[in-house]
Design a protein around this nucleic acid. Sequence first.
DNA 1: CGGAATCCAGCGGGATACTG
DNA 2: CAGTATCCCGCTGGATTCCG
Lengths: 125, 125
Amino acid sequence: MVTNGTYERGDLFDPNCGTRLILDRIGDKWTALAVLRLQHGPLRFTELRDGIGSVAPKVLTQTLRRLERDGLLTREVFAEVPPRVVYDLTPMGRSLIGPLTAVSDWAEEHINAITTAQGQYDAGS
Amino acid sequence: MVTNGTYERGDLFDPNCGTRLILDRIGDKWTALAVLRLQHGPLRFTELRDGIGSVAPKVLTQTLRRLERDGLLTREVFAEVPPRVVYDLTPMGRSLIGPLTAVSDWAEEHINAITTAQGQYDAGS
DNA sequence: CGGAATCCAGCGGGATACTG
DNA sequence: CAGTATCCCGCTGGATTCCG
């Protein structure tokens, strides 16, 4: 597996390495979901909320604000009545879809095996 | 982007879908790090702990036990004095390295852009 | 409609001390 | 060495209510 002498390309042991920071971010409960929901085009707040499940509005707002702050999505407000706010991924946000999908695919493929393994482990195997 | 009618291959809106479950798992503070540290071969408890940073032993144990329960790593105990315990990835655990590396690579590539975006956002841009 | 404000509980995670 | 046993804190995330 190790063809050259390099370890993880970064410094995983360093708490400030990129991987740690990003993992803390997309590892939270809704971030990855929000990004994946937006991969097919812009959505409004309510569409996002309904599509994702039962997220408290406060929590969804937090998630979206963080993503906006990180430059991964844009938030466009239309001064209308009733108000309309549209969220969309930035190019950088879109570039995250690939890696995220890789993990998601892996999850779908192995979720059954994992559940089985858990059952055996709990059975005192 | 949507060439056919399918959304995410799973049912992301279902709290019980694989992606959600896995993300909750590898999204925690140490799991992904532990897996990545083990990609080059088996390690002992202390080697894992020293390599990863400052993890409280209790927390590292929790992480490793969960991974063992999920069938992602093996825990082999040698009845010696002093005791020796070796952790190693299972084939399934090894198959997670790819997706994890994809995310990790993305993180290393974009961490600077993200930090910059945060700075601008905080500047009230 | 798209939040903001408030309150709150749980638990993930850390520090420390001890043990087979 | 490789944990276990306690204690404890903060923060994430949830429920609810109200507002422009």
